[in-house]
Nucleic acid binder design. Structure first.
Length: 422
RNA sequence: GGUGAGGUGGAUGAGUGGCUGAAAUCAACGGUUUGCUAAACCGUCGUAGGGCCUUAAAGCUCUACCGAGGGUUCGAAUCCCUCCCUCACCGCCA
């Protein structure tokens, strides 16, 4: 959530920035500021009255100790009167704070100045394209057919065991999955990220911390018996590791990576884009997360983009990097780069990574802070990205590298996979 | 699932109604000393929100917080209730 101070300092600029995200209720900004004014007034009243009560109570203690019962009784009457005025003030204060918070969490993060205007994915800006477009083998087929032909993935079996969108990987398919996870984690840890293996279910507080709750609960699987949520991404448990922590400046940057399965209900999506591995309810992903000094977060964002780009290059895939427009960005992000790889047999671009700077939007909610050189406590910035999401990488690898002899794996994977060809 | 114990500041841990926002020790930070390190000594050392003052910072002051929420009381870390969590033992089990 946004910091109140930011709204108070530049309400006009905030509204302009929100407009880039096509935010429809700019009047919330003024409402929030006016609620904050009330909050301050009420806080003052409450603190004054409570202060008097505390002082009187202390006096009563002294009077009682000296046996001055009458005076003590008088003071008690005084306190009683003060308390009757305190009650309503307290109620109003609590109501104001609650309302203030409710409005504040409805404001999305402010997009950075680099964010292009626009409403739909068509308005995203292609930053650059890399790798070379593969020459398609004459007998090429889409990955779901390759998966069947080489017995790598059994979608039907997934239906039987669970439901649609829960593929079963088998034989070399399963092994390739494992090889990719291993390679990605290795690549990330080499770059200084500390590896974690977090829980795959989280409680409410954690889901709230990264912004899945209260709004996006429809996107998560909810285990109602224990009130836990299956994670939609490793970002959720991993970023929350530092919830309510005050770091030392020297601890920054904190770099973390984790492999987890990801569970997404994808409620409401169906039809053309859901074939094969294009969109599934459970998939594997390796994530990178950083907590950094606010002054460095945009440099780190570029560094992370470059990190992911090199990984994709090492797999020999044709890719492009998009800078998301205001209308296509997530609620929490200030600047997002999406990576898409070209999947030749489908002739489609598939999103395989999303790298974002959240600035202080997540850390404000999670209270992830650090003490700076002057001993002042301030919010860190958080960033994360996929490095990488597996299914679409797999789709692209299978489709692009097929020929009459089978499917040739990129060299970087061969060691992990234990072979060159499928 | 059963029984028992417990949740206090970065850690250990004292505190059973007012003098406790919280002892003590350790860690951390700053300094003195030292050829360097260590040791010793001195000092600092929770978070958040108001008010005063200020360009600002600093400073002064008040309020809230001792797992969460509610209650009793003039007054609660301390008493009562509910919930959550942790630990130990037993049972079950990968």
């Amino acid at each position: 959530m946004l910091q109140l101070a930011v709204l108070r300092n530049n309400p006009t600029e905030v509204k302009e920035r929100l407009a880039v995200k096509n935010f429809k209720e700019p009047e919330l900004v003024d409402q929030i500021i006016s609620l904050d004014d009330s909050r301050k007034k009420l806080t003052f009243q409450f603190d004054e009255t409570k202060g008097k009560i505390n002082a009187a109570s202390k006096e009563i203690g002294g009077l009682m100790a000296r046996g001055q019962k009458e005076e003590a009784e008088g003071k008690k009457k005084e306190v009683e009167a003060l308390k009757t005025t305190l009650g309503p003030v307290q109620e109003e204060l609590e109501a104001t704070e609650k309302q203030l918070n409710e409005l504040l969490v409805r404001l999305p993060n402010l997009p950075s100045v680099k964010v292009p205007k626009g409403k739909t994915p068509e308005d995203n800006e292609v930053v650059r394209t890399g790798g070379s477009k593969p020459e398609l083998y004459a007998g090429a087929v889409p990955h779901w057919e390759l998966a069947k032909k080489f017995d790598l993935i059994d979608f039907e079996l997934g239906n039987k065991l669970t439901g649609s969108g829960f593929p079963v990987y088998k034989g070399k398919g399963a092994k390739l999955q494992r090889a990719l996870i291993q390679y990605f984690l290795e690549y990330n840890t080499q770059a200084g990220y500390t590896e974690y293996l977090p829980p795959h279910m989280v409680n409410e507080a954690t889901a709230y911390g990264t912004g899945q709750l209260p709004d996006k609960e429809g996107q998560m699987y909810h285990v109602t018996g224990d009130n836990l949520y299956l994670i939609p991404t490793a970002e959720v448990p991993v970023t929350n590791i530092y919830r309510d922590v005050i770091l030392k400046e020297a601890d920054l940057p904190v770099k973390m990576t984790a492999y987890t399965p990801c569970f997404r209900r994808e409620a409401g999506s169906y039809g053309k884009d859901v074939r094969g591995l294009n969109r599934v309810h459970q998939f594997d992903k390796v994530e990178v997360v950083q907590l950094v000094h606010p002054e460095k977060s945009y440099d780190v964002l570029e560094e992370m983009v470059s990190h992911v780009e090199k990984l994709i290059q090492s797999l020999g895939l044709h890719y492009r990097i998009l800078r998301l427009c205001g209308g296509d960005m997530s609620f929490t992000s200030a600047l997002t780069y999406d990576f898409e790889v070209y999947s030749a047999a489908q002739d489609k671009w598939l999103e395989v990574s999303s790298v974002s700077n959240f600035e202080a939007f997540q850390t404000n909610r999670m209270k992830i802070r650090f003490k700076d050189g002057n001993g002042k406590t301030q919010l860190a910035h958080s960033l994360n990205g996929s490095s990488l999401a597996l299914p679409r990488i797999l789709a692209s690898l299978l489709e692009n590298n097929q020929d009459e002899n089978g499917i040739r794996l990129p060299q970087v994977l061969q060691g992990y996979f234990g072979g060159e060809m499928i």
